Simulated assay, not measured.
Amino acid sequence: MSSDTHNTYLTTDQLSARIHYTPRTIRNELLDCCLIEGRHYIRPFGRRKILFIWAAIESDMLSAEHDALSLAQPE
């Protein structure tokens, strides 16, 4: 399987280590505000456990940084 079609799924603790937010902050502040079910995370088999989709999260984080930088540039 090529890396383009392979998603990396992360637990809350693994995502926490990558983005340097506590698991509690991810669950209480980012979930359903910045991280949207179906785009950034899934609940496999309809269960409570959440798996985060790293490619979508990383893409949106980089896009948001780019948007913020372009807004800060003088015209």
Score class of each variant (00 low, 15 high):
1 M>R: 13
1 M>F: 10
1 M>Q: 12
2 S>R: 15
4 D>V: 03
4 D>W: 04
4 D>G: 03
5 T>D: 15
6 H>F: 02
6 H>Y: 05
9 Y>P: 13
10 L>V: 12
11 T>R: 13
11 T>E: 07
11 T>L: 05
12 T>M: 08
12 T>A: 09
12 T>W: 05
12 T>P: 12
13 D>Q: 14
13 D>G: 08
13 D>V: 06
13 D>H: 10
15 L>I: 11
15 L>E: 08
15 L>P: 11
15 L>W: 10
19 I>D: 11
19 I>F: 09
19 I>V: 15
20 H>S: 07
21 Y>I: 07
22 T>W: 05
22 T>F: 01
23 P>L: 00
23 P>N: 03
24 R>W: 06
28 N>M: 05
29 E>S: 12
29 E>F: 04
29 E>H: 14
30 L>H: 14
30 L>F: 15
30 L>D: 03
31 L>P: 05
31 L>K: 15
31 L>H: 11
31 L>V: 10
32 D>T: 04
32 D>N: 13
33 C>F: 13
35 L>T: 06
35 L>E: 01
35 L>Q: 07
35 L>Y: 08
36 I>N: 04
38 G>H: 07
38 G>N: 08
39 R>T: 13
40 H>M: 00
41 Y>G: 03
42 I>V: 15
43 R>Y: 02
43 R>T: 09
43 R>W: 01
44 P>G: 00
44 P>F: 00
45 F>W: 09
45 F>K: 10
46 G>Y: 03
48 R>S: 14
48 R>V: 07
51 L>K: 13
52 F>Y: 15
52 F>H: 11
53 I>M: 02
53 I>P: 09
54 W>G: 02
54 W>Q: 10
54 W>E: 13
55 A>V: 06
56 A>R: 15
56 A>F: 07
57 I>H: 06
58 E>T: 03
58 E>Q: 15
59 S>N: 07
59 S>Q: 11
60 D>K: 01
61 M>W: 09
62 L>I: 04
64 A>G: 07
65 E>P: 00
66 H>I: 07
66 H>V: 08
67 D>C: 01
68 A>H: 10
68 A>Y: 07
69 L>E: 09
71 L>W: 03
71 L>S: 03
74 P>H: 07
74 P>Q: 07
75 E>I: 05
